[in-house]
C-alpha cells in the first residue's frame, strides 16, 4: 500500500467528502479536505500534494477555474476531477482545463482508488523505458515484441497495446472504464462485455500455457497484472 501519498480533497458535498477521505485514509493516504474552491486553490498552490481530487461544482470558485489557476501558476500536481453524471463534453472540457483524469459521480471507491494510484504513480515512473517486465513476462517496446519465459507471444497490435498498458500499471488495479478510456479512448460502454472479451483473448495467449497466471480478475473492480494474485 502507498503510505507516503498526500492527497487534497476539494469537495463541498459532506457525504462524498467523508466517503472519499475515509476510504483514502484506510488505504494509507494522508488526506486534507476543504469544501471551498478558494481554500482549495490556496492549499494546492501553497503546499505539496501527490494528488488532488477536485469537485467541479464548488462554492467560492468552481473546480475548473481552480485547476486553470493552478496550472497557470505552474502547479503540476496530478488532478482527478469529480463531476455529476458525465456528458461526453464535460470530460473533454475538464481535461482541457488541465485536469489529468475525470471521474463521474456516482463512482465506486475502488474506481477512484485505482485512478488515483494511476495518476500519482504515473509521475514517478516517468523515465523512458524500452523494456517492461512482470515476472517472466518481458515486453520490448522498440522491437514491438513480448516474451514469456523466453517464449515469444504472438500478439495482435491491439493485444500488444492492452498488455503494454497493464505492464505500465503493474501491480495496480485497472478498472474496465480505465481501459476503455485510456487504451481505446472510448468513454461510455453500453456493452460491458467488450473489455472482458479483449481480456479473455489476451489471457489466452498470456497465461494459458503457463502455470502461474499473471492477469488477475478482481470481482466488481477490474483487473491487475501481477506476479502475486
Amino acid at each position: 500500500m502507498n503510505l507516503s501519498g498526500r492527497v487534497l480533497v476539494v469537495e463541498d458535498d459532506i457525504d462524498v467528502a467523508d466517503y472519499v477521505t475515509k476510504g483514502l485514509r484506510e488505504v494509507g493516504y494522508t488526506v486534507e479536505h476543504v469544501a471551498d474552491g478558494r481554500d482549495g486553490l490556496y492549499l494546492a498552490s501553497s503546499s505539496t500534494f501527490d494528488g488532488v481530487i477536485m469537485d467541479r461544482m464548488l462554492p467560492g470558485m468552481d473546480g475548473l477555474s481552480v485547476i486553470k489557476a493552478l496550472r497557470a501558476a505552474g502547479v503540476e500536481t496530478p488532478i482527478l476531477i469529480l463531476s455529476a453524471l458525465g456528458q461526453l463534453d464535460e470530460r473533454v472540457i475538464g481535461l482541457r482545463a488541465g485536469g489529468d483524469d475525470y471521474l463521474t459521480k456516482p463512482f465506486g471507491f475502488s474506481e477512484l482508488h485505482a485512478r488515483l494510484e494511476n495518476l500519482t504513480r504515473r509521475r514517478t515512473g516517468k523515465s523512458i523505458e524500452t523494456v517492461l517486465r512482470c515476472g517472466d513476462l518481458e515486453m520490448d517496446l522498440l522491437a514491438r515484441k513480448a516474451t514469456r519465459a523466453g517464449k515469444s507471444l504472438d500478439l495482435l497490435p491491439r493485444e500488444f497495446k492492452l498488455l503494454e498498458y497493464f505492464l505500465r500499471n503493474k501491480d495496480r488495479v485497472v478498472t474496465r472504464t480505465m481501459l476503455l478510456e485510456q487504451v481505446w479512448d472510448y468513454r461510455f460502454d453500453p456493452h460491458t462485455s467488450i473489455i472482458d472479451t479483449h481480456i479473455s483473448r489476451l489471457r489466452k495467449k498470456l497465461d494459458e500455457t503457463f502455470d502461474k497466471p499473471l492477469l488477475h480478475t478482481l470481482r466488481g473492480v477490474g483487473y491487475r497484472l501481477s506476479e502475486t494474485s
Binding site: L85, Q87, L88, D89, P106, F188, P190
Partner: peptide, 14 residues
C-alpha cells in the same frame, strides 16, 4: 441504469 441515464443525457445534448 447509470449508463442508460448517461446515454439519455448524451442524446439530449446532441
Amino acid at each position: 441504469v447509470l449508463a442508460t441515464l448517461s446515454a439519455m443525457l448524451d442524446i439530449a445534448r446532441a
